[in-house]
Structures are given as structure tokens and as C-alpha cells.
Design a protein around this nucleic acid. Structure first.
Length: 288
DNA sequence: CACTTGACCTGTCCGC
DNA sequence: TGCGGACAGGTCAAGT
């Protein structure tokens, strides 16, 4: 599911494709995706807009227009944004690659943006939880206001994380890392992976953490996110890059979706239990 | 106030 | 083979 590294990957890829392009039309196949606008309102408002830049805040992708409005997109669990250059044109050079993905649109396509040059952007979402909101800059500020610190920003210091854990002594590490109001962009995959890298059990109580353990956790969060971004994200199932291809981080996963498989460090069996309402994966031997 | 559960959805997998 | 149910998990609202 798209978490920070996946949305960051899309941001970087779409930054190469979208700025400068102008929207010719929008086709809405599942109106709930663009709620509260009706398909007619959405189509009328977005037609003619020119994209200035693509940004990311937490797991939200922000497609800015020259007129200072924004299309804010949340992919939730199964959302995809697939960019298709106009026929005969490829974004990465060379011949069109059949391995890159299935033909667009798919049965799960919820809306399509068509640009004046013939290029298209497809929003696919199997489970229909994702959304796209066409909003002004004031509404963007309201949207991102409750979101916590970006873990890859320089102000995400040891002290910041220490303070967060001190503020919620009775929560567990996993509950804390998943809380978007505290730290932005971590989901189920990267909380489990960061805890493993820091050798800490995700179910540990915050108040039991020593300062040097929090330091290790901060470093682990940053390393795991950066490494995944380098590999263009995790495609356990639905996540796709903007060209339809899969991210390359799955072989680097140490615990997520590896229950009953041997720990890559000690060989003991990776365990899975339910915690904080999520499947939680860890090595009982390596993580304390 | 803090924590848990349900809702939103569909596809996949498992046991019978 | 088919069917029911559990499960996958981001986020918000409602319930305990």
C-alpha cells in the first residue's frame, strides 16, 4: 500500500511528466472518488488547468496548477496513478515495454485526465477508498495542517522523536509511528521494517524506551524510507510506479509479509500478530 | 480521555 | 466446484 516511499516515488516520476501540461478533459468513472464535486463540476473546473508542480505531504500527492489550485490525491491502500504519454511517445525512451503493466484503462480505473497533447493520467483503485480533491490553496493548508513531522526532513531530530514518545508514555512504538498526526507517511510496512532495523519490538511501551533506543529507531526509520525510495517502493500487491511497473523493495523486506519465514539475521521464524488493529510482523529473537 | 471497533470496498485465499 | 468467511490496511467516525 502506498506509504511515504511509494508516494515520493510517484512525486519524482510525475514531476518529470506533468508540469507544463494542460488538462483538456476529465472522465469520471466512479464519482465518489472526486467527492464532494459532481463529475460535471469536476470536469468543468479542471478543464484548461495547467500543472505547475507536483509535491508530497505525508501520503498525499499534491498536483499544483498554475492558478494556485491543487488536485490532492490519496491512494489509500490500492490506488494507482499511471501516466501514459501520447501514442508513439515513451517517457523512459526506447520501445514500449509490455512488461511495464496492463493496458489502461483497467476495470478499476476511477477517473482519467486527458492532456492537450494527448497524454493521459489514469487513477485506478480496486477498493475505491482513495480520493482526489480539487481544492484551493486555503483548503490545501487545512488538509495538511493536522499532519505531523516529515521523517526525512532535517528538523526530524532525536529530540523531536524523544519528545513524541514522552508525550504518549502508555502507547506502543507501533501505535505511535502509525499516527499521522505525529509522524507523516509511515504505514504498516515501514513501521514494522523500522522496528526490525532498530531491533525493537513494535509492541514495546513508549515509556520503556531508553534514549539510545529512540536514537536507533530514528536512524532506522530514515534508513528504511531512503532505501525504499532508492528501490522505487514496495509492490507487495497493488502498488505501481507511474509507468505501471512494480517497485523493487520487496526483496529487501525483513519482516513485513514474511511470517513463518526465517529471519534474515538469525534464522528464527518471523512472527505475525495483531496489534494496533494491524498485522504486525517481527522477529522475537532479534527484537526486544 | 484513550483505546477499540465499524465503515468504506473488492479480490484472494482458505476450509468445508 | 462452489460457497461463506476471514483477511488485506489508511483514515475517519462512532462506540466502549
Amino acid at each position: 500500500m502506498p506509504e511515504l516511499p511509494e508516494v515520493e516515488t510517484l512525486k519524482r516520476e510525475l514531476t518529470k511528466a506533468l508540469p507544463g501540461r494542460q488538462i483538456k478533459s476529465a472522465k469520471i468513472l466512479w464519482p465518489k472518488t472526486i467527492f464532494p464535486l459532481s463529475p460535471q463540476e469536476f470536469q468543468k473546473q479542471i478543464a484548461g488547468k495547467k500543472i505547475s508542480q507536483v509535491k508530497r505531504r505525508a501520503k498525499i500527492l499534491l498536483i499544483d496548477f498554475v492558478d494556485t489550485t491543487t488536485l490532492a490525491v490519496h491512494l489509500k491502500m490500492t490506488g494507482q496513478l499511471i501516466f501514459e504519454p501520447k501514442r508513439g511517445q515513451t517517457i523512459r525512451g526506447g520501445h514500449p515495454d509490455k512488461a511495464l503493466g496492463e493496458k489502461q484503462p483497467t476495470r478499476h480505473t476511477r477517473f482519467i485526465l486527458t492532456f492537450t497533447d494527448g497524454a493521459k493520467l489514469f487513477f485506478n483503485d480496486l477498493r475505491k477508498f482513495g480520493w482526489a480533491k480539487l481544492i484551493d490553496d486555503q483548503q490545501v493548508r487545512q488538509l495538511v495542517a493536522p499532519i505531523g513531522i516529515e521523517p526525512l526532513s532535517p528538523i526530524f531530530t532525536n529530540q523531536v522523536l524523544v519528545d513524541i514518545f514522552r508525550r504518549y508514555p502508555n502507547r506502543t512504538i507501533k501505535q505511535t509511528l502509525l499516527d499521522q498526526a505525529l509522524i507523516a507517511g509511515l504505514g504498516n510496512i515501514y513501521t514494522d521494517e523500522a522496528c526490525f532495523k532498530a531491533r525493537l519490538s513494535p509492541t514495546r511501551q513508549n515509556q520503556s524506551l531508553k534514549k539510545n533506543e529512540i536514537k536507533k529507531l530514528r536512524e532506522a526509520i530514515i534508513e528504511v524510507l531512503k532505501l525504499s525510495i532508492r528501490h522505487k517502493g514496495t509492490s507487495t500487491k497493488d502498488y505501481r510506479r507511474s509507468d505501471g511497473s512494480q517497485g523493487g523493495f520487496v526483496p529487501h523486506l525483513k519482516v513485513y509479509s514474511r511470517q513463518n519465514k526465517p529471519c534474515k539475521i538469525c534464522g528464527q521464524s518471523i512472527q505475525k500478530l495483531s496489534h494496533a488493529g494491524r498485522g504486525t510482523h517481527f522477529c522475537p529473537n532479534c527484537q526486544k
